[in-house]
Design a protein around this nucleic acid. Sequence first.
DNA 1: ATGTTGCTGTTTTTT
DNA 2: ACAGCAACAT
Length: 793
Amino acid sequence: MTDALFSLSAAPDDDLLKGLNPPQREAVEYRGPALLIVAGAGSGKTRVLTHRIASLLRNREAWPSQILAITFTNKAAGEMRERVEQIVGDSARGMWIATFHSACVRILRREADQFGFTKAFTIYDSGDSRALLKRIVREREADALGLTPAGVQSRISKLKNELADAESYARDANMSDPAERKFVEIFGDYQRALQKANAFDFDDLIAQTVFLFRAFPHVADVYRKRFRHILVDEYQDTNHAQYQLIRELTKPVQTEISSGGAAVLIPEADGASLTVVGDSDQSIYAFRGADIRNITEFERDFPGAKVVLLEQNYRSSQNILDAANSVIRNNFDRKDKRLWSDQGEGDKIVGFTGYSQHDEAQFVADEIEKLRRSGMDYQQMAVFYRTNSQSRALEEIFIRAAVPYKIMGGTKFYDRAEIKDALAYLVAVANPADEMAVRRILNRPKRGIGDVTETTIARFAADNGMSFRDALAHPAEMGLGPKLQKAIAQLDEVLRAASEILQPASGEQPPSTSVTEALRVLLNDSGYYDALRRSRDPQDEARVENLDELVAVTREFARNNPEGTIVDFLTEVALVADTDDLDDESGSVSLMTLHTAKGLEFDAVFLTGVEEDLIPHRISANEPGGPQEERRLFYVGITRARKRLYVSLAMTRAQFGEVTAAMPSRFLQEIPALLIDWKQSPGDVNSRGGSQSRALNARRPQNDRWGVKPLAPGSGLKPKSTAMDRFPGLVTNKVRDNGDLEVAAGDRIRHEDFGEGTIDVVTGEGAKRVAHVRFDTVGAKKLLIKVAPITKI
DNA sequence: ATGTTGCTGTTTTTT
DNA sequence: ACAGCAACAT
């Protein structure tokens, strides 16, 4: 890093400011107690943040260890660290660049002993806490009062985000309402269960850190003295607990000394300097407690705060920005802000209306291939949707069309049952107090231990004042059959063996490979692996592969963290969502929800399912501020696009197993008509009844907003059903298998939907053979030979 | 204790 | 459409 060394000694900031516009420079250079950077989409805020940090370091205004930068996702944290490292080199090491959650975990692990936890505490994800609540709701027989685990969970989460606990809530609650009383009992039970299990749920990570700081000011002071510069990204999405955490950290440090019998507070250090970056137009997490007021009232909260506005957009073409501006303008109650660009108009937005979600997906796939042929890489394209369930139709079509894709977020790797089982084994060793984890693995693989035996063990543990885990060491004393005794003893033995690997009795530090080793011992000696391999269920084959993958993850972890412990590993998997893994298995299109898309950018963006009841989502209609938040979500989607933006919808959508008619989203009409080039407008689909194949459709003249020609009575409007009739089995769920079909370049084929064509080339092998076909009428397409409805002619 | 069947609600977004 | 689950059967 000669570069970094050089720049450390060179005249400080010139290269850091080069290429920045005036407000950006000011955001980098301003020094003071509080700075708010209002950063519109694509205005270069990450650049400003990283340069600001670099400038602090270079000018020796701060040591790396005095900097705390908080982001919302691990991915963003990783990117920021990387970019700072690029500028200042290794001195970036000691900085805390982390998410709220991981920063809090670090603090809590250090201080756990102070308030009744151990360093090895477990982090419960929402699945874990729902499982726990399910048990409590059942025990308390709360379903009779209309309390469901999911409902209770979301209420508790909201309360924790407001820093309320069971007691404080009970003070204000209407305790004459039996359901309310029951809820308070459940909340209390839940919190005690967490404490007993030495566990925190997601919301606790933040809230308990705040409580810790408030209860132990001397602990808080340690961090207040340490962090002199605190920077928070995506500030518009902070909730109350996070806000209070920041407040605690930025308080001045005072020392109490007694002088003449009276205690006097002497200021010892100023509060840390706080920089926040955000854009209230991109606030999309109000539903989980984000409070937009944190940013709108920043100047009141931190008097004397400096505000810098970044409005020039360096990402998108003007047409895209115009669309974004015209949409967001419809939100009242916002400061007017207009993004502008000097990059020129760019291409028009392309619109398309499919007859069904599959038709829509086919359009997306076709356009992706067109873009690819024009030279754009797949990894520069993204498809967004409002709900995860919408990804299915897209996937089905993409597989058939051989479009390489990856789904970001969604059903997570770590949510799979076999992975959770494997992790529960590790947790049972690392944190034996976590009864949920031990119970989970009790009968996995099947050991013949059912409900009755489980209760017997729990009873024995309670009677003898030992933990559930420790009770497993005494199977002979529970009056169980010999088979059960043996099963329990074996489990106990396996856990013991793994514990010796991870936490040797000798007290010495286990090698970094110990996690991999322990996991292998646990999965093999418990019989888990064998049970899966013996099974005839074809899904179990995939499960074995997933477990192999998990083993690979532990190996990777050991490589990256030579000092890493089992607790570090479990922290990482608990906090690192799949969205974060930057697996640059390059060359695939990214599919994700609009929420996941925040903070990302792509050359080409497809906004799909732009329909009423989807975006804005039906449920949002009843929530205060809901429709506005949906509009911001749509705005976030639009502003992710650099060059090409597509909006698409379907006239019918299968939901809950039945097909319903869909309406164009109100947000579509907020985009000026002349910005959209409709390849097929909602009007086309309605008035033509879908009688023509899309590929043959010329663009309709735009008579009105959608290009709908007024319908004469009795005109050729066909019953709606024809749209569907015309596309029977465009996507069938029957799994075709052409496995043995031999095709080669030059062959003529016939496709059920696309007609006849000539094969240009065949790529791939085995089940993944792909035919690149030039059809006579619909142009070039790629087809996965194994599943395509084609015949040779 | 475990496997099978038919019923239920479910799909808003996530650290 | 589908997963998850209670009730019933093995």
